[in-house]
Design a protein around this nucleic acid. Structure first.
Length: 294
DNA sequence: AACTACCCCAACCGCGATACA
DNA sequence: GTGTATCGCGGTTGGGGTAGT
């Protein structure tokens, strides 16, 4: 059984939206809210397929869309996030308020990708090119586009070990904070069907201090939901947890060495609380090697 | 002014994921 | 548990705008 088309194409408008269509869609969503895209065109009286309505709303009509050029700061953030996430445009867009995945994708393809291509030329300095260097999973994209639409991804230089987070193929099941080590160690398993705790916006579910050990084990699933939640995480409970440990000298979990070892992580809490992803990236970087595909 | 080549971006397409009956 | 509907995402396309000749 073949896949059914998303909608009957006959009699439907295609191509650019008219101002009248925009108004109808905007008015309808303002009254009835988003969702039910399949039936929306019929109910709203639009000769468009639901997909088209959804796309138009999300990418253009939504009131919180930010217009105007991508700023330098935004570009920096896009580059860093792309390095971290690859072509996960929706995830990247989620970190840039008012920007859509489509906009960022287009911007990447037309601007940043071009810069990378230019800077990857032998004449370009490696220092500069490294800024745009990105491990890019889109090698499957057809590089031999024959039209004049030269937006195909350039073959990106790969002179630096990948730090891409592959949120689907890989799975981290445990974070192991060693008391005698400065860094967080992430046990990396692939395809292990082990139950994982539901990551929430509170860091506390990650912490399951065992009474019989001075190690902290955290179970979680590394997927985009986790990553998204992680990026939104309020780490203040971790700081409180740290203070609790400091104050409770009888707790078997507590040891001076473990406190010292957690200092590195906990001091980063200040960075995290600022919700500034640019400061988050350096914190993540030490972990990223564990997150690469082996 | 006319033509061509290129650029940009809105829109489309196909597929996987998820929800639901 | 299974099949179907729907949603959401990433890749791709096409057309309008514009710079160059």
């Amino acid at each position: 059984m073949g896949r059914r088309p998303c909608c009957a194409k006959e009699g439907l408008n295609r191509g650019a939206w008219t101002a009248m269509e925009d108004k109808i869609l905007t008015d309808y969503i303002r009254v009835h809210g988003e969702g039910k895209w399949r039936s929306l065109p019929k109910r709203a009286g639009l000769k468009r397929c639901g997909k088209s309505c959804r796309l138009r709303w999300l990418n253009y009509l939504r009131p919180d869309i930010k217009r105007g050029n991508i700023s330098r700061d935004e570009e920096d953030l896009i580059i860093r996030l792309h390095k971290l996430l690859g072509n996960r445009w929706s995830l990247i867009a989620g970190r840039l308020p008012g920007r859509t995945d489509n906009e960022i994708k287009n911007y990447w393809n037309t601007n940043i990708g071009k810069k990378i291509q230019v800077l990857s030329q032998p004449s370009a300095t490696s220092t500069i090119s490294n800024r745009y260097n990105s491990s890019n999973p889109q090698s499957k994209q057809n590089p031999s586009r024959t039209t004049d639409h030269s937006v195909a991804q350039p073959p990106l230089p790969n002179t630096e070990p990948s730090r891409l987070v592959r949120t689907k193929a890989s799975r981290c099941t445990k974070v192991f904070i060693r008391p005698d080590h400065q860094n967080v160690t992430i046990h990396h398993n692939v395809g292990v069907g082990e139950a994982a705790s539901d990551p929430g916006n509170d860091i506390s579910p990650f912490i399951s201090a065992k009474d019989d050990t001075s190690d902290f084990m955290m179970d979680f699933e590394m997927d985009e939901n986790f990553l998204s939640d992680f990026l939104n995480t309020d780490f203040s409970p971790l700081y409180e947890f740290h203070n609790d440990l400091k104050g409770d000298t009888t707790d078997t979990v507590t040891s001076s060495s473990s406190l010292d070892s957690n200092q590195n992580l906990l001091s980063s809490n200040e960075m995290l609380q600022s919700s500034d992803l640019q400061s988050l990236a350096p914190l993540l970087d030490p972990c990223m090697d564990w997150l690469q595909d082996q």
